[in-house]
Amino acid sequence: MSARWFARRCLFIGYTLLVVSLLVFAITQALPADAAVTLLGENATPAALAALRLKLGLNDPVWLQYWHWLSALLRGDFGISMRTGQPVGPMMFSALARSLLVAGLALALMLAVAVPLGLVAALRRGGPLDLAAGLISYLGVSLPEFVTGTVLLLLLADHLHWLPATGYVPLLRNPLDSLRHLVLPVLTVSLVMVAHVSRMVRSEMIDVLHSDYVRAARLKGLPARTVLFRHALRNALLPVITVVALDVGYLLGGIIVVEEIFAIPGIGRELIVAIEMRDLPAIQAGALIMAGTYAVANFLADIAYALLDRRIRYD
């Protein structure tokens, strides 16, 4: 991994954020709502509206508005929420922290389940366990989060009363209760990814088990366990890193739904609220922060891959 490669990746993150900011700005600018009307209400006097438009720079040409917004962004200023009157930056980042807790737990749970599942399915290819895993993963990728979430809620919280239905408790205030509240949302978002990633691990593992070097390792007389874990699993998991990173995009989408269902004040819920309220700065900040999270996750995955697989030549 050369400095040049690193510089390229950083440049790419910058480019990604630039494109995302342009896109988000373009989409939100096309919003039919007049920000001034949203702020002051339908009954505001034309004079007051005009004054506010001037103050917000709404009369400037679009590119100038973009430039003002972007340069403020670069200074870390995401704008003021039209809904709460508070700066959106801190609001969105603290929401992001809550979302990342859900996402992190979901990723961990997913890996803990998907990797062994895919491994066993590959080793017992065509066996009953493989078929069962296959069926489950079909179901997993075919159920949208709002269905699984609601059904889980119905079953585990409403029917069996094992878990609290909705709500969020900060981790530091009461760790146990906090985690109890997180079980359902985490379970919901990880299900789709378990289905996807376990299939991926399975097919990669099957490929690797058929590779020449695994055969060579076997025929060198190495113990089966060494062949499996040192030679096969490691190489089968490498491409999975990339897939998991790409799945982060899916995860972030899933989190929007899950936060809505389970009433978690994360970034997804903030976004939905902002969209409903047409709170422009909040929408822009939320979308940008989500995309940034995704880009950073992929950047980290690239670094992990590079460290684990020296074959990649970074030029």
Binding site: G249, L252, G253, L271, I275, A287, A291
Partner: peptide, 15 residues
């Protein structure tokens, strides 16, 4: 690639 950094659901929501 950059556009794909916006999760599909979010992009759909914005549109």
């Amino acid at each position: 690639d950059a556009v794909m950094a916006i999760p599909g659901l979010l992009l759909a929501l914005l549109v």
